[in-house]
Amino acid sequence: MSTAILTSTSLQQRVSDAEWQARVKLSQAYVLAAKLRWTDHIYTHFSLRVPGDQPHFLINAYGQTFDEIRPETLVKIDIDGNIIDDPTGLGINPAGFVIHSAIHRARPDAHAVMHTHTAAGIGVSAQKQGLLMISQHSTRFHQRVGYHDYEGIALDLDEQQRIVADLGSLNALILRNHGLLTSGGSIEEAFYNLYYLERACQAQLAAQSGGAELLILPDAVAEKAAQTFENSITNKKYLLHWDAYIRQLNRNAL
């Protein structure tokens, strides 16, 4: 039996079943992100609140690539930055703590938080007008995405209050000149939000690259579509999206 399996078995035995399932889902999100090329090598981070009464959340060990992350390698920390469990001993990305702890502290409903530095996300984040209502994917975020101005590498704790203020009650935030961030009540919902935001950014850059005049959707039409998406979220249709991806992952179809 390999050391990795022994470590996994040992950790699974000493954490609750709920925590272990949270670890499994978060690690799956990381591997899916690697398959979808949403990564910035060892940088960027996803987090998930640990079920229970304690304000703990799981995040990636600093130095692992997304495809290496497994349930047993995730780091458990509290919202003050204290490491509760670090099986690899690698610690965490300090910027990841600043961003994720701010949201987990301020938004108890945001159980999962995902942050990326994709080319498309950075590209749109650097555009003054931000996300344009030019695709069905973008309408998902009609008047439902916030913007946070770039302040440098996110290492200053006083930036947390501005991140939280700019996100507000939303589940999508474009970090200017930086990247994308989504949240949700579950890993499945946050992943669904990130999928649509990333696709909307990809579509925007593709449309702009053609050089033709863009067709901006009227507010009423964009809002109608956005409300349809919201109904899907209320009905948890994002679970179908997640389950389909997990099936693809399990059969190596990505």
Score class of each variant (00 low, 15 high):
residue 84 I to Q: 12
residue 84 I to P: 04
residue 84 I to N: 14
residue 85 D to F: 00
residue 85 D to W: 00
residue 85 D to Y: 01
residue 85 D to H: 02
residue 85 D to E: 12
residue 85 D to T: 01
residue 86 D to A: 01
residue 86 D to N: 08
residue 86 D to C: 11
residue 87 P to A: 00
residue 87 P to M: 02
residue 87 P to C: 01
residue 88 T to L: 06
residue 88 T to E: 10
residue 88 T to K: 09
residue 88 T to W: 09
residue 89 G to H: 09
residue 89 G to D: 00
residue 90 L to G: 06
residue 90 L to F: 09
residue 91 G to E: 01
residue 92 I to C: 04
residue 92 I to M: 06
residue 92 I to K: 01
residue 92 I to F: 03
residue 93 N to I: 04
residue 93 N to L: 04
residue 94 P to C: 05
residue 94 P to L: 03
residue 94 P to Y: 10
residue 94 P to H: 04
residue 94 P to M: 07
residue 95 A to I: 05
residue 95 A to M: 10
residue 95 A to S: 15
residue 95 A to D: 10
residue 96 G to W: 06
residue 96 G to R: 02
residue 96 G to Q: 03
residue 97 F to C: 07
residue 97 F to W: 03
residue 98 V to N: 08
residue 98 V to G: 09
residue 100 H to D: 13
residue 100 H to Q: 08
residue 100 H to Y: 08
residue 101 S to M: 11
residue 102 A to R: 06
residue 102 A to T: 10
residue 102 A to F: 10
residue 102 A to Y: 10
residue 102 A to G: 14
residue 103 I to F: 06
residue 103 I to P: 13
residue 104 H to V: 07
residue 104 H to T: 08
residue 104 H to Y: 05
residue 105 R to W: 14
residue 105 R to A: 14
residue 105 R to I: 12
residue 105 R to K: 14
residue 106 A to D: 01
residue 106 A to K: 10
residue 106 A to L: 06
residue 107 R to S: 07
residue 107 R to V: 15
residue 108 P to T: 13
residue 108 P to I: 09
residue 108 P to N: 10
residue 109 D to S: 14
residue 109 D to Q: 11
residue 110 A to D: 13
residue 110 A to S: 11
residue 110 A to Q: 09
residue 111 H to A: 15
residue 111 H to S: 14
residue 111 H to W: 09
residue 112 A to S: 05
residue 112 A to L: 02
residue 112 A to V: 12
residue 112 A to H: 00
residue 113 V to K: 00
residue 113 V to I: 10
residue 114 M to F: 15
residue 114 M to E: 05
residue 114 M to D: 05
residue 115 H to C: 05
residue 115 H to Q: 11
residue 115 H to P: 00
residue 116 T to Y: 01
residue 116 T to S: 06
residue 116 T to D: 03
residue 117 H to V: 00
residue 117 H to T: 00
residue 118 T to K: 02
residue 118 T to V: 01
residue 119 A to G: 05
residue 119 A to K: 08
residue 119 A to Y: 04
residue 120 A to G: 07
residue 120 A to C: 05
residue 121 G to V: 09
residue 121 G to L: 03
residue 122 I to P: 01
residue 122 I to L: 15
residue 123 G to F: 02
residue 123 G to D: 04
residue 123 G to E: 02
residue 124 V to D: 00
residue 124 V to W: 05
residue 124 V to Q: 03
residue 125 S to I: 12
residue 125 S to A: 13
residue 125 S to W: 07
residue 125 S to H: 06
residue 126 A to S: 15
residue 127 Q to G: 06
residue 127 Q to I: 12
residue 127 Q to W: 11
residue 128 K to Y: 14
residue 128 K to I: 04
residue 129 Q to G: 06
residue 131 L to C: 02
residue 131 L to S: 06
residue 131 L to A: 03
residue 132 L to V: 11
residue 133 M to S: 12
residue 133 M to R: 11
residue 133 M to F: 09
residue 134 I to P: 00
residue 136 Q to S: 12
residue 137 H to F: 12
residue 137 H to S: 15
residue 138 S to Q: 02
residue 138 S to L: 11
residue 139 T to V: 09
residue 139 T to R: 15
residue 140 R to H: 11
residue 140 R to E: 12
residue 140 R to S: 13
residue 141 F to L: 10
residue 142 H to V: 06
residue 142 H to G: 12
residue 142 H to N: 15
